[in-house]
């Protein structure tokens, strides 16, 4: 581990994840036992189940959106919280149990080498089952980001990332930070600002329960939105 005197926050956006959030937090707190420089924040994105109560019962930070405004917006609330409280970095992970908390160590090893560290399920030795349409989508994203940045990103849709303070300020203050799915467009924005991006292997599992936010319909919408968003970033910075 290369981290000295740095304070980190794990940001977990959650929407109606009462069935999963307890397991995620239990596993996370187990492995964080020895890492006292890391704290946990759950951003409850207007859930109408017991997500908030379950998260609070673990004695961690909990923020509550008064209504459901989207996964990306919940992430950005976490970024704003981290900036206000002067955290040196945040790690974002999903509340559905897909991200293995033990992989956090992999991010910390790359802490001094990048501003944005992306967790890739495809660099891990553990196979992640994925359907045809998502495979196709991820392949398209890889090519897209390669054309834009000349970088080889194996998992451009990953929601498991470490973001250092330098890049965090940019994302927290971004008025147009996507409220739904911030992925390739955000990677592109960070890259355009000259921040260093790296990938590390992480273990991801299929969802424990509930429904995934990715479907064929949302994938088509997602691609169209991505295109406009990247174009806007490109024009904005010119």
């Amino acid at each position: 581990m290369e981290i000295k005197n740095e304070k980190g926050l794990i940001v977990i956006p959650a929407y109606n994840e009462a069935n999963n959030i307890g397991n995620v937090l239990r596993k996370l707190l187990d492995i964080l036992g020895e890492k006292d420089f890391l704290e946990i924040l759950v951003v409850n994105d207007g859930s109408y189940d017991d997500t908030e109560a379950i998260a609070r019962s673990y004695g961690i930070y909990v923020l509550n959106h008064p209504c459901n405004i989207g996964y990306g917006a919940a992430l950005q609330t976490g970024f704003k919280f981290a900036c206000e409280r002067d955290y040196d970095f945040v790690i974002i992970m999903d509340s559905d149990g897909q991200h293995e908390p033990k992989s956090i160590g992999n991010f910390l090893q790359e802490f001094n080498n990048a501003d944005l560290v992306l967790g890739s399920r495809f660099l891990s030795h553990i196979h992640y089952p994925i359907d045809f349409f998502r495979k196709l989508g991820i392949w398209g994203m890889r090519k897209f980001i390669k054309i834009l940045t000349r970088m080889r990103i194996t998992d451009p849709t990953t929601g498991f990332q470490l973001i250092k303070k330098s890049a965090l300020n940019l994302l927290a203050m971004d008025r147009f930070y996507p409220a739904d799915f911030p992925d390739v467009d955000v990677i592109y924005k960070v890259w355009r600002q000259g921040f260093k991006i790296k990938e590390v292997p992480v273990v991801m599992y299929p969802r424990m329960s509930g429904t995934s936010m990715h479907s064929l319909k949302s994938s088509i919408y997602y691609f169209a939105r991505l295109f406009i968003s990247i174009l806007a970033t490109h024009i904005e910075e010119k």
Partner: peptide
């Protein structure tokens, strides 16, 4: 979005 984020931070 901005209002919901502000409310969440202020409530905390």
């Amino acid at each position: 979005k901005q209002l919901a984020q502000k409310i969440a931070l202020l409530e905390h």
